[in-house]
Amino acid sequence: MIAWTVRTLPQRASTWWTIYRIALEERMAYRGDFALGTLMRFLPIVTQIFLWWAIFDAAAAATGKSHLAGYSFHDMVAYYLLSMLGRAFSSMPGLASTVARQIREGEIKKYLVQPIDMIGFMLLARMAHKSAYYAIACGPFALVFYLCGDYFPAWPTVEVGLAFLLSLVFAFLLGFFLDLCIGLIGFWFLEVSSLLFIYMLLNFFLSGHMFPLDLLPVGWRGAVDYLPFRYLAYFPAAIYLGKVPSSQLWQELGVEALWLVGMIFIARYLYARGVRRYSGYGG
């Protein structure tokens, strides 16, 4: 049995700060490659612009309507750009696979013998990675958003702006805990790569990364609204574009917060149960 020493809050904060700083420095090492990679990630947007331009043209020629499911062509382009911003917060490349690998290869025991909580450590490291990412990606993002400025509607009100920022922070946390839970399933299955693939696929489709969820047929739309994926890309973009009525804005954010709390509990539960199941051998 390990004796846990009781630590004061400043001591804990100092530990957190150290973890954050180390992870940040690790990430900043490859900043050139990073910035180039980020800029290239916008290339598919170019094809999306032309694709939707053609779709809106054809729809207008056939039916005379300039809007599809409430979106004008400009809204649509703005939606894709904003959903990319949402994904920049909510996507967690490598998180689930890293957790599963650490469980499989026994690396996880370092958290069991050291006075560091694994979930807290991973969250801090991920926050550092994301900070490093934003520090470098804000350049390419600003450039592309500036170039595409004409596609965006007028600036949102302060209330909508705040809700938008909050939805991005929630998207980050929800994305983190969803991915973490998939990784923690590794305590039971060891190999989660195919499960992870299915999760990524569903995520891509149901988060609204592929297209605005408003395009879905009515029945499907209702079902998708009951899943947490929509908060990862669709929801922030929809808030910004005024697709969420202001009367429902805070209520919807409240539902998202409930999802978040739920996922934190599930992650904690899976971790606690998993650690009890886990057995490590050798040094």
């Binding site: 694709l51 053609a54 779709i55 809106f56 043209d57 054809a58 729809a59 207008a60 020629a61 056939a62 599809l68 499911a69 297209f211 395009l215 047929p217």
Partner: peptide
């Protein structure tokens, strides 16, 4: 997409 438009490009 084709629920919303008859073709890609007029």
């Amino acid at each position: 997409v084709f629920e919303h438009t008859p073709s890609i490009g007029a």
